[in-house]
Design a protein around this nucleic acid. Structure first.
Lengths: 348, 348
DNA sequence: GCCCCGAATGTTTGCGCTAACGAAACGTGC
DNA sequence: GCACGTTTCGTTAGCGCAAACATTCGGGGC
C-alpha cells in the first residue's frame, strides 16, 4: 500500500478492558474497584485507580444501565419552569438528587392536561429513568397518574388528596389560614380573596383555608375572585376590589397577583396598608421590595424537594407497591412573613 | 414437584425479540420498523406495529445508546435556575430540544467557578449526553471550557468573545445602548448605572453599552455602582443614588435591582418618573406592574434557546471541530419596552 | 503435612439493540 | 432462459459492563 501513515485516528475513549490491561488485571476487577472497592486488595486497587487516571477512563453509563437495570437518573415532569414555584421545586429536587448521585432529566409541559402529564412521564420512561417526580399541583396530575402502570415509581409534589402515589406537599391550607388569622387579629371584619385557578390544587387549597377560618370566626365570606397567577390577573381583579369601599383586606393567592393588586389599589388612590391590607403567597425574593413590602407566605421548597426525592428513592428500591396501606405523604408547613402591607383597618 | 403454581411473576417488559416472535419476523426487522420504516414492506410493518402495541413494547434506550453511541440526550449546565434569566433559557432550550426528540438532562450550579462548570459538564458527560449547553454568562464559563476535551460538543449561551465554542447570545451591549439613547433623547444630561456583578459577562456587556453611548455623546460618565442582581442590592445602591439630587436617570442592569431602586427612591421621597427616570433589563412578566410600570429591555429567550440548540446539533453531527475558522456565533437583539418609569428630567 | 476455608481475582454469559453483511425472492432485459 | 439489479428480510457480531459462578492462593487447625 502506498497510503500515507493513517491519520492519528483519535484514540477511542478507554474502556474497562483497556484499564484492566494497563493495570495487569481482568476487567472484572476494574468493575469491582468501581462498585465494591472493599473487595479488592488495596494494592491492586491502587494500580487500577492509577490506570484509570492515566487513561482518563470514564465508565459508560449506557452499558452499566443495560447490565444493571438501574440508571441513576430521575425524571421531573413540570409545568412552566419559568414560574417561581415550579422553578424552585425543580431546583431543590435537583440538589437533593445530586447529593445522592442521581442526575435529573426534565420534561416541561406547556399545557396542563392529564394527557400532557402522561406524555411527559412516558417520554422520561423512554429514557430509562428510575422514577419520576411530578411537579404539577393540578387536577390533571391525579388524572394522568391513573393511566400509568402502577409499578412505575412516581412521586407527586404538591397535589391533593386521593392521588395513587406518594406525595410531598406544602400545607397551603394552613398557610392560607395563617394569613386570614393574621388579618382578623389586626381587626379586619373579613378578608377578600383573589384565588388562583381552581383546577390547581394549590389554588383550591388556599381557598379552602381562607374560607375555613372566616367561617370558623363567623365572618362573612365574600365571593372569591379568580385569577390565573399572573400579575395581570391580579391587577384586573384588583380594580374591582379597589372600587369597593368595604374592602379592607385582600389575600392574593400568590405574589405576582398581589403585585398587580397593589398597582390597582394605588391607581384607585387607596393606600396600602392604611386603607387596605394586602397579603401574597410564595414570598418571592422581590416581595420585600414591593410597594409597600409585601406580607407573604414563604414556602419551604428545599424541604419539600428533599422529601420528594426521599419518597422516590424509597419507592424505587423499597418494598413493592404498598398494597392497601395507602401511600406515604409528607406535609411541610409554610411560614407567614409579616411586612408592611398589612395593618389595622381604617377607623380603629 | 409439589410446588404451588409459581406466583404470577409480573411479566418482564417485552423486548424486541418478543415483538419479533409475535409478528413472525426477526428482531432486525423490528429494529428496522423503528429506525427506517421505509425499508420494510408496509404489510410487514403493520404486523410488527400491531405486535408492539399488543405487547406495549418500548425500546430500551440504554441498549440503543450502547449500540449506536448516540443518546438523544443533551445536557444543560446552568447557574441557579431559580433566576428569571436562566430559567427562561432552560425552558426555551428544553422546548427546542423536545421538538427535535431530544431530551434534557440538567446540572445546576450553586457556585460559579471554572471548577464548578467543569464538574457540571463532566457529570453530564458521565451520563452519555450527546452534547452540553452551558448557561453561565460568566467569566468562569470560558475558563472552565478550556479544560474540557476539545472534541466534546459544547455550546455556550450568552457569554463573551473569546470562548472556544459556538455561542448564542443576546446583544446586551446593544440593549444597554438603547436604554441610554432613550434616556438621553428624553433630555437627561447623563445616566447612572447600577451594574450587575462585573464577572458576569451580561453585566459587563451592559456596562460597556451604557458607557459607550454616554461617551459617544460627550456626556459625563458617572462611576457605575455595583449590585449582585438582587432587589436588595438595587435597594442598597439606590439609597445612595436617591441622596444625590443630580441623579435624574438610572439604568439598573436587571429588573429586580430596578425594583429595589424604585423602593429606595420612593422612601427618599423622589418621584418616578417626574424626578428620576428608571430603566431595568430583562422585562420580567411583573415589570408592567411595578410602581410605576417599568421601562425595561426584553430578551428574546425563545430565539436564543433555539439557536443554542441548533448550534449544538450542528456540532454533534456536523463536521469535526472547525479548525482555525473560529466558532459560529448567533446574536439576537433585545427590545426596549417603554413604560411609565421614564420621562423627561425635571425642569424641562 | 494435609485439608479446608475464605479472600482475591478470573471466566463466562447476557443485558437489548443495531451495523454490516448475506441470502432469498422478485422482476428485467436480451 | 439466464445473468443481474432491487427490494426485503435474516444472521452474526459486537457495543461496555456486571451478575453468577469458577478458580487460585495463602494461611490456620489438627
Amino acid at each position: 500500500m502506498t497510503a500515507a501513515t493513517p491519520p492519528p485516528a483519535r484514540p477511542r475513549a478507554a474502556v474497562m478492558e483497556d484499564v484492566a490491561a494497563l493495570a495487569g488485571v481482568s476487567a472484572m476487577t476494574v468493575s469491582r474497584v468501581l462498585n465494591s472497592p472493599e473487595k479488592v486488595r488495596p494494592q491492586t486497587r491502587a494500580r487500577v485507580l492509577a490506570a484509570m487516571r492515566e487513561l482518563d477512563y470514564r465508565p459508560n453509563s449506557a452499558a452499566r444501565v443495560l447490565a444493571t437495570g438501574r440508571s441513576g437518573v430521575l425524571g421531573v415532569v413540570s409545568f412552566d419552569t419559568t414560574l417561581y414555584g415550579p422553578a424552585s421545586m425543580l431546583y431543590s429536587i435537583e440538589r437533593a438528587a445530586r447529593a445522592a448521585d442521581y442526575s435529573v432529566n426534565i420534561a416541561s409541559l406547556s399545557t396542563l392536561t392529564p394527557r400532557a402529564i402522561e406524555d411527559g412521564v412516558e417520554r422520561l420512561r423512554g429514557q430509562s429513568v428510575d422514577g419520576v417526580v411530578i411537579i404539577a399541583p393540578h387536577q390533571s396530575a391525579a388524572e394522568g397518574l391513573r393511566r400509568l402502570p402502577p409499578d412505575f415509581p412516581v412521586v407527586v409534589v404538591g397535589v391533593g388528596d386521593d392521588v395513587p402515589a406518594p406525595v410531598a406537599v406544602v400545607d397551603h391550607r394552613a398557610g392560607a389560614a395563617r394569613v386570614v388569622r393574621h388579618l382578623l387579629s389586626l381587626g379586619h371584619q373579613t378578608v377578600w380573596h383573589i384565588a388562583g385557578p381552581t383546577d390547581w390544587i394549590d389554588g383550591s387549597a388556599r381557598v379552602d383555608g381562607w374560607r375555613a377560618v372566616l367561617t370558623e370566626h363567623g365572618r362573612e365570606v365574600p365571593e372569591p375572585l379568580s385569577g390565573d397567577w399572573s400579575a395581570r390577573s391580579g391587577y384586573e381583579q384588583g380594580r374591582r376590589l379597589a372600587a369597593d369601599p368595604d374592602v379592607t383586606a385582600v389575600f392574593a393567592a400568590n405574589d405576582p397577583m398581589a403585585l398587580g393588586l397593589l398597582r390597582a389599589l394605588r391607581e384607585a388612590g387607596r393606600r396600602v396598608p392604611e386603607e387596605v391590607s394586602v397579603v401574597g403567597f410564595d414570598d418571592v425574593p422581590e416581595a420585600p421590595y414591593f410597594a409597600p413590602p409585601l406580607t407573604s407566605v414563604r414556602q419551604p421548597f428545599g424541604e419539600v424537594g428533599r422529601h420528594a426525592f426521599q419518597l422516590l428513592l424509597e419507592r424505587i428500591d423499597g418494598t413493592p407497591p404498598p398494597e392497601g396501606a395507602g401511600f406515604p405523604r409528607r406535609t411541610v408547613e409554610p411560614e407567614l412573613v409579616v411586612r408592611e402591607s398589612t395593618a389595622a383597618p381604617p377607623g380603629r
